[in-house]
């Protein structure tokens, strides 16, 4: 706040201070000084009048923007997403997941609520020391430890899931990059229940881990994480931090390229419809592939 009264020299009030006066946002001390100045300064009084007129015009114009009311189902939608509808679903504050839905944005990341039935295609078991181990263990270290493979993603016997699409559409080749891989096939790895992509489950995530999902145009990727996870979304990039237990990542089949990184290292990449799994395989079952990082 500057009002300089030096002899007969006076510094005019700036627009910000005049605006604050009109908005009744000046402090008591400033208010008095500004009022004194205005009483003596015709120039500032005129400017304040113009500011007031301009503000009224803006208010009138902005009032035209609201063309719709919130949907009546907004409250229900929020409750559903929080998993706390009283109609038999779980109620209470300790909700198990952070779910963010962006259904209208195409060809970029979205975070979505994903039923557990759709989960678990690949399981990455991340050791407790991962956060500190990874910076010294670049991707090539994992590769040296043994490139793993995934496999015939859609050869599932699980009848509980949504019926699969035509075989020719479902057959997604997976390259393992390893020596001695069994033709890139491993029975039992399956696509998610909705048949829209591949779901990766990351468990035993070390505190402070950063999971980054990158996606080139094509479809929508998603993540589903336990509390107190936070999500960051940018064009072609989704970040999950602070997950305390698990993160599910869903990659779309139609993506040109996608990858899943943990603390700067790439665990999985999806290029041209092929899934490449990096990291030592510690277990293979008909239901999943498990990777463990030292």
């Amino acid at each position: 706040m500057y009002i300089l009264l030096l002899g007969r020299t006076m510094t005019h009030l700036d627009d910000g201070r005049l605006r604050a006066l009109l908005d009744e946002e000046l402090s008591d001390a400033d208010y008095g000084a500004v009022r004194i100045h205005l009483a003596e300064c015709e120039t500032c009084r005129t400017r304040m009048t113009k500011l007031e007129e301009r503000g009224a015009l803006v208010t009138q114009a902005l009032g035209r923007l609201i063309t719709a009311a919130p949907t009546e189902g907004a409250r229900t939608a929020v409750l559903e997403r929080l998993g706390s509808l009283p109609n038999g679903k779980r109620v209470g504050p300790d909700l198990p997941v952070a779910a963010v839905k962006r259904p209208r944005v195409k060809s970029r990341m979205r975070v979505l609520g994903m039923p557990l039935a759709r989960a678990a295609i690949l399981v990455l078991l991340l050791g407790a020391g991962l956060a500190t181990a990874l910076p010294a263990s670049p991707v090539r270290g994992w590769i040296a430890a043994g490139w793993a493979l995934a496999a015939d993603l859609f050869d599932t016997q699980d009848n509980a899931v949504t019926p699969l699409g035509p075989p020719e559409e479902a057959a997604v080749p997976i390259s393992d990059g390893s020596v001695g891989a069994q033709d890139g096939t491993l029975p039992g790895v399956r696509r998610d229940a909705a048949g829209e992509g591949v779901t990766i489950e990351l468990r035993e995530i070390s505190p402070g881990s950063l999971i980054v999902v990158r996606l080139e145009p094509g479809g929508e990727a998603g993540a589903f994480a336990g509390l107190p996870a936070t999500f960051g979304i940018a064009e072609g990039r989704l970040e999950v931090t602070g997950a305390s237990n698990f993160v599910f990542v869903n990659l779309p089949l139609e993506a040109a390229a996608a990858s899943v990184e943990v603390n700067g290292g790439t665990y999985l990449s999806w290029v041209g419809g092929s899934l490449e799994v990096l990291g030592p395989v510690v277990a293979r079952t008909p239901e999943e592939i498990q990777l463990r990082v030292p």
Partner: peptide, 24 residues
Amino acid sequence: HSLTGDPDLADDLAQETFVRLYDR
């Protein structure tokens, strides 16, 4: 709604904000 010009998107974003409020 004012910022986006899209009431559907506004609903999505407002709902998302509330989900985060309770989630966190």
